[in-house]
Design a protein around this nucleic acid. Structure first.
Length: 882
RNA sequence: GGGCGUUUAGCUCAGUUGGGAGAGCGCUUGCCUUACAAGCAAGAUGUCGGGGGUUCAAGUCCCUCAACGCCCA
C-alpha cells in the first residue's frame, strides 16, 4: 500500500463526512437517556468566522463524545433570520440598483429577501459541514419556518392574553438610518469627545435676568418643555415655579424641581426634553409635562421645531441653533466634555432617543422562576462566575421592547379596525372587527425582535405547541454552549420562555466560552479585518488540525488568542499521527493467526504502554465529562506523541524485524494496532476525520466490532491495566536511556558509534531489568553492551551519570577533557546540595514534623535520602576523576 | 460610577481540596538514525505583577497597590 509521507487532509475529510452523513450516523440512535445540544443558530446571512469555529468545535466534540458513549445523541441545528442584519444586506443590493425598499414596497422586498435566503442562506451550513459538525441535518430549522412561526404567534397571543404583552408610548433607542427601534442591548456605547454648551434662558418677566443651562445637545432645546433644578440646591430655591422664555421659539416654560438633577453638572440647571431624552422622559412623567416631538423617524427636524428648522438634519439644526444663539448673545460659553454616546450595533449611526408606540413584554413575572432554577442549581453556568452576571441582570430586569420597524421578520399579530379603531390580537387574521363588524382591518406594520423567535428555540424547533415525540424525548436538553455576550439576549430569555410555556428547564448546563482575539488582544471581527477565513485554513491544514489547535489553546471559558502560528501544533500532530499509521502499515500486512489479548506474551514495553493507555483513557473520560476539553486534548496529545510514538514504536522496531511468527513479533504487531485503534477512539471527538480514516484502515487487519468509529464505543479504563510497578520499571529504563544519551552528547559521539556502558547498580532487581532489556539500550541509546552489577569495577577514564541510586559509566578510550567533566559534575553537585539544604531545613523544623500531614513528612524523608545518595555518588565520581 | 476578569519561561497560555514550577511555539547544540526535518535527541530559560498578612509550608487563601482587558450604567 502506498501512503504519502505527509498527511493531506482534503480528500480524506470530505470522504468521511459524506460517509457519515449518508449512513445517517448524525441522527440519534438507540434507547436510554438522550443527550441533546441546541445549536446557537447562526445568522442566515452569516459566513463562518473564527468565533463560529470555536463555538461549533466545542459542541461537536461534546456531541461526538456522548454519541460514542452510546447515548442517543442529537445536535439540533438551524439558522436565525436575523431581522435587521438580513434586511440590511438586501437593502444594500437595492442601493446598488439605485432603488430603496420604500420604492419597491413591502411585498417585493420580502420576495427579494426570501430569494436571497434560498440562494445564499445555506452557505454557513455547508461551511459547518466542512468543519466536521455532526448535526442532525434532517432536523435543520429556520426561525421563519412555518413550524417556528406558528410557535411565535402562539406565544405572542398567549402572553397578550395573560397581560404580559402590552403596547405603550415609550422613549426608545432609535436608529434613524435603519429606521427602527433598538433594544438596549443593541446599542453600543463609546466615549466621545463632545462639547458642553452653556445657554442663557431669559426670565419671562421681561427683566434682564436669565438662567444658564448646560447641554450636550443644543438642537433638542426646540423640544424643551421645562427647566429643572435640584430641590436641595440653595442657589435656585427662588427660581422654582418661575417661567422662562425658551430662546428661538419664544415659548414660555416653567422651572421645576426634581431629585434627578445633579447639582454639580454644568450649572445645576438642566433643560427638560421628554420626547428626546430618556431621563427627561421620566422627569416629564413625574411632572405631567407635555411630550413635544421635534424630529421625525429619520432624525430630520419637523414642523414642531419651528419653520426655520423644519427639514434640517439634527446636525444641521445644531449648527443653526448655535449660530442664532450666538447672534442673540445667548451662548455663554463652550466647554469640552467627554460623554458616552450610543451607536447602532449594526450600522454605528448615533442612536436617537425617540418617543413612539411600541410593544413590550413584562419581564418580571417571567424572571422569578428563571432566577430560582439557577439559585437552586438546576441550571449551572460554567465557569461559575457567569452566574453572578446572570443574576444581576435578572434581578434588575426591565420590560423588553419587542417591536421593530422593519419588514423582515415575524409580523406582529395585531389588527386594527379602520372603522372603529378596535385592536384585535389573534393567531389568524380576523375577517371582521369583533366590535363593529367592519371588514376593513389592517395588520400592525411592525415585526418582532429577532430574539422573539430565538428565545423559543428549545421547544419551537421540536414542534411546539404540538406535544411531539421529539419534545417528549429531547426536552430538557443537556448542555448549551455559547458566548457570554448573549447571556441576556438569548440564554436568560430561553430559560424564561421554556419554564413559562413548557414548565421545564431548557438545559441543565451552560458552557460559556471566550472570545477569539488576535495577537494584539483585539476581538476578531470583519470590520477590523483581523479575522482569518476558516475555510481558507481548512483548505490549508484541514479541519482536524484547526479543531485541535483551537481546543488545545482554549482553557475552559478563557479567551483565545488566535494567530496562524497556533495551527502548526495541530498540523504537525495530524502529520505525526499519519506517519505513525504509515509506519504500522509498512510493517504489518496482517496478523497471522491472530491471538487473543490474554495469549500474548507481553514484555515490559507492552505492559507499560497498556498501563499508560489506561491512565490516559481515564483522564480523557474525566476531562470530556467535565467539559475540560483542552485538558483532554493535552492528555491524548502527550500520550500519542511521547509515549506511543517516541517510546513504544521505537522499541517495537527491533521486534518487528524478528522472525515471522515469533511470539515477540506477533505481540508487538498486536499491541501496535490495538493501542493505535484505542487512541483513535480517544481522539475522535476532537479530530474526527483522520481518526476515522486510520481506524477504518486498522479494522481491515484487526477485528473491531463496530462498523464506524463515529459510533464506536468510547473506551473505559480497566483498573487491571494500570500497573504502577510496571510504570516505575519503565521509568527507570527511560531515565537511564536519557542519561546515556546525555553522556553521549557531552562528548559529541556521532549517532552511528556504538558504546559500551558500565552500570553499578544497587540491587538485583535492577540488574535483572538491565539484563533482560539490553535491547532497549541498544535501540534507543546505541549501546553495544551494558555490563551491570552491584560490584562492577568502575572504568577509568570515563564520564559518568547517576540515575536514582545507579551509577552509569561511559568509558572513554581517547582523551577526556577532565576540566570540562569536573565542571559538569560540580554543577550537578551544587544543585543537589542546594536541594538537600532546603529539605534538611524542613525536616529540622519541629513545627513541620508536628503539623504537616504524615505522608508529606514521609515523602520529604524519602526525598532526603534519595538526594543524599545521588549527591554522594556524584561527589565520589568527582574525586575519582583526579 | 458599578461589576467581572487577567497579570507564571522570549511569545500564547496550563497549573482542581495550600506540600518538589509545566505545555505548545521560539531559542542553543548535534543528527537527512528508511514512520515523520511538519522529524529525532540533548539542553538553556521563571524574584509565579509589587507590597503586606494567615500558615510548619503560598503560584495556590486573605488584604492592598499597579497595569491591562471586558461587561453594565
Amino acid at each position: 500500500m502506498e501512503i504519502s509521507k505527509t498527511y493531506s487532509p482534503q480528500d480524506i475529510e470530505k470522504k468521511w463526512y459524506r460517509y457519515w452523513e449518508d449512513a445517517g450516523y448524525f441522527a440519534p440512535k438507540g434507547e436510554g437517556k438522550p443527550f441533546t445540544i441546541l445549536i446557537p443558530p447562526p445568522n442566515v446571512t452569516g459566513i463562518l468566522h473564527i468565533g463560529h469555529v470555536l463555538n461549533n468545535t466545542l459542541q461537536d466534540v461534546v456531541v461526538r463524545y456522548h454519541r460514542m458513549k452510546g447515548e442517543p445523541t442529537l445536535w439540533l441545528p438551524g439558522v436565525d433570520h436575523a431581522g435587521i442584519a438580513t434586511q440590511n444586506m438586501v437593502e444594500k443590493e437595492l442601493a446598488k440598483e439605485g432603488t430603496t425598499r420604500h420604492e419597491i414596497g413591502r411585498e417585493e422586498l420580502l420576495e427579494r429577501i426570501w430569494a436571497w435566503k434560498n440562494e445564499k442562506g445555506n452557505i454557513i451550513i455547508d461551511q459547518l459541514k466542512l468543519l466536521g459538525a455532526s448535526c442532525d441535518w434532517n432536523r435543520q430549522r429556520f426561525t421563519m419556518d412555518e413550524m417556528l412561526s406558528r410557535a411565535v404567534k402562539e406565544v405572542f397571543v398567549s402572553l397578550y392574553e395573560d397581560g404580559l404583552i402590552y403596547k405603550g408610548k415609550y422613549i426608545i433607542n432609535w436608529c434613524p438610518r435603519c429606521v427602527t427601534a433598538l433594544a438596549n442591548d443593541e446599542v453600543e456605547h463609546a466615549d466621545e469627545e463632545g462639547k458642553l454648551w452653556y445657554i442663557r434662558y431669559p426670565y419671562a418677566d421681561k427683566s434682564d435676568r436669565y438662567v444658564v443651562i448646560a447641554t450636550t445637545r443644543p438642537e433638542t432645546m426646540l423640544g424643551d418643555v421645562a427647566v429643572a433644578v435640584n430641590p436641595h440646591d440653595s442657589r435656585y430655591k427662588e427660581l422654582i415655579g418661575q417661567e422662562l422664555i425658551l430662546p428661538l421659539t419664544g415659548r414660555s416654560i416653567p422651572v421645576i424641581a426634581d431629585d434627578y438633577v445633579d447639582k454639580d453638572f454644568g450649572t445645576g440647571c438642566v433643560k427638560v426634553t421628554p420626547a428626546h431624552d430618556p431621563n427627561d422622559f421620566e422627569i416629564g412623567r413625574r411632572h405631567d409635562l407635555p411630550q413635544l416631538l421635534v424630529m421625525d423617524e429619520y432624525a430630520i427636524m419637523n414642523e414642531e421645531a419651528g419653520a426655520e428648522f423644519a427639514g434640517l438634519s439634527r446636525y444641521q439644526c445644531r449648527e443653526k441653533v448655535l449660530e442664532l444663539l450666538q447672534q442673540q448673545g445667548l451662548l455663554e460659553k463652550i466647554e469640552k466634555h467627554e460623554h458616552a454616546v450610543g451607536h447602532c450595533y449594526r450600522c454605528t449611526t448615533s442612536i436617537e432617543p425617540y418617543l413612539s408606540d411600541q410593544w413590550f413584554v413584562k419581564m418580571q413575572p417571567l424572571a422569578r422562576r428563571a432566577i430560582e432554577v439557577v439559585e437552586n442549581g438546576k441550571i449551572r453556568f460554567q465557569p461559575a462566575r457567569w452566574t453572578k452576571v446572570y443574576m444581576h441582570w435578572m434581578n434588575n430586569i426591565r420590560d423588553w421592547c419587542i417591536s421593530r420597524q422593519i419588514w423582515w421578520g415575524h409580523r406582529i399579530p395585531a389588527y386594527y379596525c379602520e372603522n372603529c379603531g378596535q385592536m384585535i390580537v389573534a393567531k389568524e387574521a380576523p375577517e371582521r372587527c369583533d366590535k363593529c363588524d367592519s371588514r376593513r382591518l389592517r395588520q400592525d406594520e411592525d415585526v418582532l425582535d429577532t430574539w422573539f423567535s430565538s428565545w423559543l428555540w428549545p421547544f419551537s424547533t421540536m414542534g411546539w405547541p404540538d406535544d411531539t415525540p421529539d419534545i417528549k424525548r429531547f426536552l430538557p436538553t443537556q448542555v448549551l454552549i455559547t458566548a457570554p455576550e448573549i447571556i441576556y439576549l438569548w440564554v436568560a430569555r430561553m430559560i424564561m420562555s421554556t419554564l413559562h410555556f413548557k414548565d421545564v428547564i431548557p438545559f441543565d448546563t451552560v458552557l460559556l466560552h471566550g472570545t477569539v482575539r488576535d495577537d494584539l488582544g483585539r476581538k476578531m471581527s470583519k470590520s477590523l479585518g483581523n479575522s482569518p477565513d476558516p475555510i481558507d485554513i481548512i483548505d490549508r491544514v484541514g479541519a482536524d488540525a484547526l479543531r485541535f489547535s483551537m481546543i488545545f489553546n482554549t482553557p475552559k471559558g478563557a479567551d483565545v488568542i488566535y494567530s496562524d502560528a497556533i495551527l502548526e501544533t495541530g498540523r504537525n500532530f495530524t502529520n505525526k499521527i499519519w506517519n505513525a499509521y504509515r509506519f504500522i502499515m509498512m510493517n504489518i500486512e496482517g496478523i497471522e493467526g491472530l491471538p487473543q489479548r490474554e495469549e500474548l506474551e507481553l514484555e515490559l514495553a507492552d505492559r507499560w504502554i497498556y498501563s499508560r493507555l489506561a491512565e490516559t483513557t481515564l483522564e480523557a473520560r474525566n476531562h470530556y465529562e467535565n467539559l475540560a476539553l483542552n485538558d483532554a486534548t493535552q492528555a491524548i496529545f502527550h500520550f500519542i506523541w511521547n509515549d506511543y510514538c517516541s517510546w513504544y514504536i521505537e522499541l517495537a522496531k527491533d521486534r518487528l524485524k524478528e522472525d515471522a511468527g515469533s511470539s515477540s513479533r506477533l505481540t508487538a504487531k498486536y499491541v501496535l494496532l490495538d493501542v493505535m485503534q484505542a487512541s483513535m477512539r480517544l481522539l475522535h471527538p476532537i479530530m474526527p476525520h483522520i481518526t476515522e480514516e486510520i481506524w477504518q484502515s486498522i479494522k481491515e487487519l484487526f477485528p473491531l466490532p463496530e462498523e464506524a468509529l463515529i459510533v464506536a464505543e468510547f473506551p473505559e479504563a480497566k483498573d487491571a491495566d494500570m500497573q504502577p510497578a510496571i510504570r516505575d520499571e519503565m521509568a527507570l529504563m527511560q531515565e537511564s536511556i536519557s542519561a546515556i544519551r546525555n553522556l553521549r552528547k557531552q562528548v559529541n559521539l556521532p549517532p552511528a558509534t556504538l558504546v559500551k556502558i558500565v552500570a553499578k547498580t544497587a540491587d538485583d532487581a535492577q540488574n535483572a531489568l538491565f539484563e533482560a532489556y539490553q535491547g532497549y539500550f541498544n535501540r534507543l541509546a546505541r549501546v553495544e553492551t551494558i555490563e551491570s552489577g552491584k560490584d562492577v569495577e568502575k572504568p577509568k577514564p570515563a564520564i559518568s551519570a547517576v540515575v536514582r541510586n545507579i551509577e552509569l559509566f561511559l568509558p572513554l578510550s581517547g582523551l577526556l577533557d577532565i576540566e570540562q567533566e569536573r565542571e559538569r559534575l560540580q554543577k550537578q553537585i551544587d544543585k543537589l546540595e542546594k536541594d538537600l539544604t532546603g529539605i534538611k531545613k524542613k525536616l529540622d523544623n519541629q513545627n513541620f514534623i508536628q503539623n504537616a500531614k504524615p505522608e508529606v513528612v514521609a515523602k520529604e524523608r524519602g526525598k532526603y535520602s534519595e538526594v543524599k545518595t545521588k549527591l554522594e555518588l556524584i561527589q565520589e565520581q568527582l574525586q575519582d576523576l583526579a
